[in-house]
Design a protein around this nucleic acid. Structure first.
Lengths: 357, 357
DNA sequence: TCACGGATTGTGACCGGTAACAATCTGGAC
DNA sequence: GTCCAGATTGTTACCGGTCACAATCCGTGA
């Protein structure tokens, strides 16, 4: 189309020459400065259009030391929550006109964290979002004390105004309260890895409700988020005669548990009720469809980003409220079968969870 | 720790002053130039260490017009394959010392694609990886004819040396051949959206094997990758008396099918055998555990990146071979029950897939 | 008619590196 | 002792924008 000989990318000075103005005037047009006459502006815009000029962000970054780019630090080891969170933040950043750079740690630790932070800072990112499901990541990050604004997504909420999270404990309370309201008394818990803040918070929530109901909280079984680990602990549940319900810390482990209980000839929900956490898209198609807790990741993403953007513009925002999840009731939970007679409780059916007390 | 008054980031000239050399010499040390005396190098390195100097990538990018950053274009709509591919490429890029920028299209189309490409080019990325599971993305990208090196991950393999993919058709052949070898004759297919190249290739592979075996290929049922869509078409399978096996284009739809068949009182694998595609981590814990095709995403990632790196260094690499997937045999497939007597075929059991013909 | 203040535009330096070329130093051959 | 090539180092310009400040233009009140 163009008859240009060389594929040289036009600069601000080329545009200036074409429009018969100084390069500074072109810069002003680009940046919407107020005091530019309409005629000049039009002329410059025409020239930019004609040369299909696009300002170099690199040059601008060098001059202003701001890049309109934010960095995300995450890990690869998350099953569902962390990547989902990351996606949501990417979406929110894009909507806000920010560019995004990702730095995924190969493993958790100080060295990899330092690398990631250096990496991002070298590239002149304006701010960092840290997705820190483990306390260790939070600690490693805190020690580095990066010189840029940041927000952490962590269930510990340690960062004050720098921190945002799903209200994990509330989700766990919702799930456990649901089981209690169905008449269950032996309510077990399968936790995720104990160094995960999410696991810890979910354990806390489960404990709280059991204590309120005057029920015993056995030591939780511990998995690693994988379906395999859920499958592995199924026998412990099956062999526990008092266990009629299980709150599982994520849906994958719940799936594994379902499969393990089936192998042990236990029926869900007739013999054992199961509640998961995450509401993965497939949860409705497990056998049976899984009752589970649904966090709102997209709200998490937007809140997280607006928090960071607030910091970038120098505001001093207060700590946002953790995001309340919902309970999605499907078919893996049912009223506790009367231990004496057959099916009592049939009349009530699954009750909807009540609001917060 | 430091007694510096201002938190000013040190530049190459600060280091030069501290080491008593010219800034160019510092630059040479940074870039490992050969002709630097050992003494000078040590002195400069000490100064860099002391000032905790880190070269500005932004400035370097401006000077060299190379950023050691590659951009990934993808979409949000992929269930498992695309994000997994993205992760794998990120990993490979990190290993190769490259920085990564992601641009996820909100939707497929020319405008969003143009935005994404502009976005990345504005930031001076050295190359682009396009994850294009749909022909439309490939077309949109091709029209833009970006000025930078790129590699596409597409199952159409249209890009020649620019293209790499999982051998989808081979995966489908593996799956279908497995079902044929179990004695099935009514082998149906549930496809993904027809505008996906992956779907198309998997349909082709399925058709090929059926044709070779002299079996009829009914028009595939079409889903949207979701478990829900697999569930929806289950009744069509259940009501088809000749259908004793189904090859499903991904594991999520297979899960939905499993749940739908159970609702229709069809047993898997006794009445119907099911094979999926992807081998999601949970596939082994479906009810029953799913026989499925496992693509090697990490090989895809590394191959993809080495292809791109080859281009960056000006090599003219030839088109790489598509990556062969494996078949993972679990419990959702079994020999076809003899329509006349009871269980024939028991003797053989599931056969391992033979190598390529 | 002239000084004055705001609107508009231009000039030169600078951001922090790299590239190209010049200058100086060194040691070995003659 | 002199000369020359290669090793080492320094000087200056440049990448493509922005910033600070100066210069010019314009209408208005004195």
């Amino acid at each position: 189309m163009d008859s240009a000989g060389r594929a040289k990318v036009p600069t601000i000075r080329d545009v200036a020459r074409a429009a018969g103005v100084s390069h500074q005037t072109v810069s002003r047009v680009i940046n919407d400065h107020p005091n530019i006459s309409a005629a000049t502006r039009l002329r410059v815009e025409a020239a930019m259009e004609h040369l299909s000029f696009r300002p170099s962000r690199v040059a601008r970054a060098l001059a202003t030391s701001r890049t309109r780019t934010i960095g995300i630090i995450s890990t690869d080891n998350g099953r569902y929550g962390p990547p989902k969170t990351q996606r949501a933040i990417e979406q929110a950043a894009r909507d806000a006109g920010y560019f995004l750079s990702t730095a995924n740690l190969a493993e958790v630790g100080h060295e990899p964290m330092r690398d990631a932070v250096d990496y991002l800072q070298d590239h002149g990112i304006d701010g960092i979002v840290l997705i820190a499901p483990q306390a260790e990541m939070l600690d490693a990050f805190a020690e580095l004390a990066p010189r840029v604004p940041f927000v952490t997504v962590d269930s510990a909420g340690r960062g004050g105004g720098h921190s945002i999270a799903i209200d994990q404990a509330e989700g766990a309370r919702l799930a456990t309260r649901h089981l209690v309201s169905l008449g269950h008394r032996g309510i077990r818990h399968i936790a995720g890895p104990l160094d995960w803040l999410d696991s810890q918070a979910r354990i806390r929530g489960w404990r709280t409700v059991l204590a309120q109901a005057g029920l015993e909280a056995r030591e939780p079984l511990v998995g690693d988020w994988s379906a395999e680990s859920g499958h592995r602990v199924a026998s412990a549940i099956a062999e526990d005669p008092d266990a009629t319900a299980v709150f599982v810390s994520n849906d994958q482990m719940a799936l594994g548990l379902l499969s393990g209980l089936a192998a042990e000839r236990k029926r869900v929900p007739e013999d054992v009720s199961v509640v998961g956490f995450d509401d993965v898209p497939e949860a409705g198609y497990f056998a049976p469809p899984l009752t589970t807790v649904r966090p709102d990741f997209s709200e998490l993403g937007t809140t997280c980003l607006s928090l960071l953007l607030g910091q970038l513009s120098g505001e001093n925002s207060s700590a946002p409220r953790p995001i309340k999840p919902d309970l999605v009731i499907r078919e893996s939970t049912a009223p506790r079968a009367d231990p004496l007679a057959g099916d009592a409780f049939r009349a009530t059916g699954p009750t909807r969870p009540s609001g917060s007390p």
